Computed example of a mutant assay.
Amino acid sequence: MSRYLAIACALFTLSLAACNTIAGAGEDISKGGNAISNTAEKAK
Rank of each mutant, 00 (worst) to 15 (best):
N20R: 10
A10R: 04
C19Y: 06
A23W: 10
S15I: 01
G24Y: 02
C9D: 13
S15G: 04
G32H: 02
S37Y: 11
N20A: 15
C9E: 15
L16H: 05
F12P: 01
C19Q: 12
T39P: 00
N38Y: 10
T39Q: 03
N38K: 13
L16C: 02
A10C: 12
E41A: 13
T21M: 02
I7R: 08
I29C: 01
E27P: 10
L11N: 10
N38P: 06
N38C: 13
L14A: 09
G33V: 00
A40V: 15
A8F: 00
G33D: 03
N20P: 07
T13D: 08
A25T: 09
R3A: 09
T21Y: 04
F12Y: 09
G32S: 11
N34E: 14
G32R: 02
N34A: 13
N38E: 13
D28V: 13
A40L: 14
I7K: 07
A35P: 05
I29Q: 05
G32T: 06
A10G: 04
C19G: 03
D28H: 14
N34R: 14
E41D: 10
G24T: 05
A6H: 06
R3C: 05
T21Q: 05
S2P: 08
N20M: 14
N38Q: 12
A6K: 09
L16D: 04
A6G: 06
Y4A: 06
G26K: 00
I29A: 04
N20Y: 10
A17W: 05
T21L: 07
E41Q: 10
S15T: 07
L11M: 02
A17R: 01
A8M: 05
M1H: 15
R3T: 09
C9N: 15
E41N: 10
A43L: 14
A35D: 06
A40K: 04
S2K: 15
F12N: 06
A23N: 15
K42P: 03
K31D: 04
A17N: 08
Y4Q: 11
M1Y: 08
Y4G: 02
A43M: 10
A8D: 00
A43S: 11
S30C: 09
I22P: 08
C19M: 11
L16A: 03
S2I: 15
M1N: 13
S30I: 13
G32N: 04
A18G: 11
A35L: 02
A18C: 03
G33M: 02
C19D: 04
K31R: 07
G33W: 00
A35S: 05
T39L: 08
C9Q: 15
E41H: 12
G33P: 01
A18T: 12
S2Y: 13
A17K: 09
R3L: 07
A10I: 06
G32M: 01
T21C: 04
A23P: 12
A8K: 00
A23D: 15
I7L: 12
I7D: 01
C9F: 15
G26Q: 12
A23H: 11
A23E: 11
T21G: 09
E41P: 01
G32F: 02
R3N: 10
G24E: 12
N38S: 13
I22A: 13
K44Q: 15
